[in-house]
Nucleic acid binder design. Structure first.
Length: 571
RNA sequence: UACCCGGUGGUGUAACGGUAACACAGCAGGUUUUGGUCCUGCAUUUCGAGGUUCGAAUCCUCGCCGGGUAGCCA
């Protein structure tokens, strides 16, 4: 949670804020806001905006960041989303104190401001249908035509608008529009709609209103009401800035926030649009908004990402104005870097292969000392039971190994981590299939703990788990949900669906884990040595039914060298 | 075709008229009781053409390329 610890490069928004602070532009204050619409779950793209807005407030003395639900369209918004947003922003590590607001809190004032605008002759009630409005708007290259109702008297506009709000007219029959310029090259300025008639129960105001303000009008007014200094949004609102300023100038509001636009975050192998994510949820392609394959904050959390790593990622991707596609490898790097320092090491075997140490006494059990985290000596050590029958990873044995394979093979000696050197004497095969089902080995009692008194060395150290003491577990391996690097590149609409990776989830049953893992807390993270970072699933993990998610694999130069083509869930 | 915004290694971001750099990814070594971590090294960059200037990634002009915009969505 670095606040002012390190000198950071000043990206253009920090620069603007610093300049404004220096010139006293907003009375030396920094007030930002994160304004999600509660119509879906927050995703990694929102995390960038959250870190930016809350970060700006945090890193400047006296700065504040409001959390504001932009709930001006009751037909799409739900309380479930409000709750999820609050949970996610808080989990990311940000605090808004008592500054939790809703655009709907301001409906009365927004309405009063609309009346003001009418009185100034700058807004009028228009009776055109939606289709007619579109026809009058013109096109990108042709100017629009004025509405026939553009020059109604102020008195008539006042009367009509109050009656709109009173429920005298059917949905969609009239709108309140700003009177600006139908010939403006900026289509947003061609008498934009300010209010529409819409009879839908609002999650907060119920049926109090049947007219709801549009984004362009409500947002700038909400910002002004809250005394926002820097109103940060994404690039697609750049063309709306003249309108943002027009409303606030026309209304002569006490505050006039500055709208600043930045490029939204895109990440490879994923989609960010709420509509698309909703589709994945609704079509059952994922288990829900919090499916560990989803780029949602809830999904990343369940997958095992830490808030620290996400914040670090958001800082590293930078803030700019050019559209970019960030390699998901950077996110994974941030995660590994964080987890490497903090995750307790533990041994788990995903694809077990039975090993019998023939010269190890039957019935004997030794408690081996294992280091919990070589990156953190304060993490201490633990005891791991060792006995005559063990499991090792199937991938750690090859009957006929290629040149650079360092692991176990017939006649070869390797180290069992924190235990002994063992030598494979033979492989037992299933006579029917020829599959190796068991390894017979011998151990060297002099190598207890993993060191050889005679100084000889081995080329590999394997993880293992004692068969008699192991606990069964289900382990879920994940790969990219979308196999295309840029799924949106496939085209408009639902074209991204063609990039769905059918192998994005691979659930392994019968995995064998260290006994201590039965006591794991749901959500707790670990490094399964030599495999990757895993977490106890926050929903499905129970002491008698262990379920782990692979958060991200370790860097694996061996697998890469092999150029693995197996359709194996990675990552 | 109108308006707006952008174009720096494979990716992302810096350099604020003065030696183009950092991170990720890639490759090659070293260390190692995790083929992890860590350490070292390598390769790859200013969209193009003019102009201003002693000097341009940076300023100007014109191109080219990419994105956004015609919801009573946000």
């Amino acid at each position: 949670m670095a606040a002012n610890d390190e000198p950071r490069p000043l990206h253009f928004i920090r620069q603007i804020v610093a300049d404004d602070l220096a010139s006293g532009k907003h009375g030396g204050r920094v007030v930002t806001r994160f304004p999600p619409e509660p119509n879906g779950y927050l995703h990694i793209g929102h995390a960038k905006s959250i870190c930016l807005n809350f970060g700006l407030a945090r890193e400047n003395r006296g700065g504040v960041c409001h959390l504001r639900m932009d709930d001006t369209n009751p037909s799409k918004e739900e309380q479930e989303y409000v709750d999820a947003i609050i949970r996610d922003v808080r989990w990311l590590g940000f605090d808004w104190g008592d500054k939790l607001f809703y655009a709907s809190d301001y409906f009365d004032r927004i309405y009063e401001y609309a009346l003001d605008l009418i009185k100034k002759g700058k807004a009028y009630v228009c009776d055109l249908t939606a289709d007619e409005v579109r026809d009058h708007r013109g096109t990108l290259t042709e100017p629009g035509k004025g509405s026939p109702h553009r020059n109604r008297s102020i008195a008539e506009n006042l009367d009509l608008f109050t009656r709109m709000a009173a429920g005298e007219f059917p949905d969609g029959s009239r709108t309140l529009r700003a009177r600006i310029d139908m010939a403006s090259p900026n289509i947003n300025m061609r008498d934009p709609v300010m209010y529409r008639i819409l009879r839908a129960a609002h999650h907060r105001t119920g049926d109090k209103w049947c007219v709801y303000p549009m984004y362009d009008y409500a947002h700038c007014v909400s910002d002004a009401i809250e005394g926002i200094t820097h109103s940060i949004c994404t690039l697609e609102f750049e063309n709306h800035r003249p309108l943002y300023d027009w409303f606030l100038d026309a209304l002569e509001t006490p505050h006039h926030p500055q709208q600043i636009e930045f490029a939204r975050l895109n990440v490879t192998h994923t989609v960010m649009s709420k509509r698309k994510l909703l589709k994945l949820v609704k079509e059952g392609l994922v288990r829900g908004w919090d499916d560990p394959r989803m780029p949602t904050i809830a999904g990343l959390r369940r997958r095992g990402f830490t808030p620290e790593s996400i914040r670090d990622f958001c800082e590293r991707v930078g803030v700019g104005k050019n559209e970019s596609l960030v390699d998901i490898a950077l996110l994974e790097h941030c995660l590994r870097e964080d987890l490497n320092k903090r995750a307790p090491r533990v041994m788990a075997v995903l694809k077990p292969l039975r090993v019998v140490i023939e010269n190890y006494p039957e019935g004997m059990v030794e408690e081996m000392d294992a280091v919990n985290n070589p990156e953190d000596s304060s993490a201490g050590t633990r005891k791991v039971p060792f006995s005559r029958v063990l499991y090792i990873e199937r991938d750690d044995f090859m009957e006929d190994p290629p040149r650079k394979f360092f692991r176990l093979a017939p006649g070869r000696e390797v180290r069992l981590r924190y235990a002994y050197f063992v030598t494979c004497t033979s492989a037992v095969k299933d006579p029917a299939t020829g599959e190796v089902v068991e390894l017979r080995c011998t151990y060297d009692p002099a190598t207890r703990g993993g060191g050889a008194p005679d100084g000889r060395n081995v080329k590999a150290t394997l993880h293992w788990v004692s068969a008699a003491h192991a606990r069964d577990a289900e382990v879920r391996l994940y790969d990219h949900l979308l196999s295309a690097e840029d799924p949106d590149d496939a085209g408009e609409g639902d074209a991204f669906m063609s990039a769905i990776n059918p192998g994005s989830l691979q659930a392994l049953a019968g995995c064998k884990v260290e006994p201590g893992l039965a006591a794991a807390a749901p959500g707790a993270f670990f490094q399964f040595e030599r495999l990757g970072y895993f977490c106890a699933d926050s929903e499905d993990f129970r002491p008698d039914a262990l379920v782990f998610n692979r958060t991200v694999g370790l860097r694996d130069t061996w697998a890469r060298a092999q150029g693995r083509k197996e359709p194996q869930a990675r990552g």
